[in-house]
Design a protein around this nucleic acid. Structure first.
Lengths: 214, 214
DNA sequence: TAGATTGTTAATCGATTAACAATC
DNA sequence: TAGATTGTTAATCGATTAACAATC
């Protein structure tokens, strides 16, 4: 990694996509790609690809291109996917359960250590071998187990309060699925997902398509 | 709605957020807001708010501001949320089940009519009163019931094939949760969600925060 | 009417694309 | 070496912000 100026968030949002495509190429046994070939595959211009990557360093080789596996690991490292993250889920409803069951995350270095609930009927059960614990005890648990990330799967009314508690307990990032914009202190990263916003965009584009056709 | 030039996707992506905040204001019984007040609430500049809204028409009143409920319904109409959408889910795994259980969508005009699966152990069960049917029969079902949207909750390997079948059967939009970029014909809208991309962005920002602190 | 606030045009800023020299 | 392709600077394009005239 070179300097470390301020990388624009547009660039950051493209990185996981680069990585995804590189992962596929790697699986296919392709070990070299030029920015031009990559462009026609991923749909960004070759210029943008080179520009994006050069924010972090010169990963290519003139006259040759980029090493697929090399670039894959560079981007993984940039994103911080070369380490493990310990996570807790708050809210054992459908969404919390779905995430707990999503074992992909485990492979990728994101380990769900526990799930917290207020509903006593759910406390004590296991979901995908992960224990559902009493929300009352969350602060102590996060502190003792050095949890990195809190995943918020509560109602929107509870979300900010849960976030505050998690920040207080020492998480370094929050992944929020409640339909509100959570605020965190500066040292805690936050990603607000807003799944239904994307459904609304979809509806917009369907309407557009519809009214165009008349 | 005024002209209908080409609205940039940056604007479209802000609309659901405007709507969300307006919904909250409405619940609080606030019936009037100026672009300045709205700005400090939602975090966009007042100028941007006015600029965005004027892509679609003059919804405000000079010297007064915007009617909260008026703007809420205008934006809902622009997004196409003033009608009903019939949806099917493909894939009755954790994610498919979570979405089927998410009754919020029903209230908002998005009705899940059926779930389709290939796993015979799941076919025939009900999830939140919605029948899990054999994937074999999906084309006929979509045609007969005039399904608008297909929700793809399959593995990434099956996703494009499922998408093609849904497009063939006549859906007008696809909401894809599989970690690939699905392609559709021009008349079918597509929204690729890529939940784990957002987890990767989170990891990036946590790493940044970490290395800054040293 | 005077004050407030929109709608809209103009200025700025940032991000994308094009071009090309460096170099493998 | 010649050809290919990167890294990087310069040009363009689009999106955001500022300013202000229109008007409720």
């Amino acid at each position: 990694m070179k300097k470390q100026a301020k990388i624009s968030s547009a660039v950051i949002k493209r990185l996981p996509r680069y990585r995804r495509y590189l992962g596929e190429l790697q699986k296919k046994g392709i070990d070299k790609i030029s920015s031009n070939e990559f462009s026609s595959l991923i749909g960004y211009t070759a210029s943008q690809i080179r520009q994006d990557l050069n924010n972090f360093g010169g990963f290519g080789q003139q006259g040759y291109g980029y090493s697929v596996s090399g670039l894959y690991s560079e981007i993984s490292a940039i994103l911080g996917l070369d380490r493990q993250y310990k996570m807790v889920i708050v809210g054992a409803g459908n969404l919390g359960q779905a995430i707990a069951n999503h074992t992909y995350y485990y492979k990728a270095g994101f380990v769900v250590c526990g799930i917290f609930e207020i509903n006593p009927r759910l406390i004590g059960i296991k979901i995908n071998d992960i224990e559902v614990m009493d929300y009352e005890n969350i602060v102590g648990y996060v502190e003792e187990n050095q949890i990195d990330i809190g995943i918020i799967c509560t109602t929107k009314d509870a979300a900010q309060e849960v976030a505050d508690k998690l920040c207080f307990a020492g998480v370094r990032g929050l992944w929020n699925f409640a339909p509100v914009d959570i605020e965190t202190p500066n040292h805690v990263a936050i990603e607000n997902v807003h799944i239904s916003d994307s459904l609304h965009s979809l509806a917009y584009h369907m309407t557009g398509a519809y009214s165009e056709k008349k």
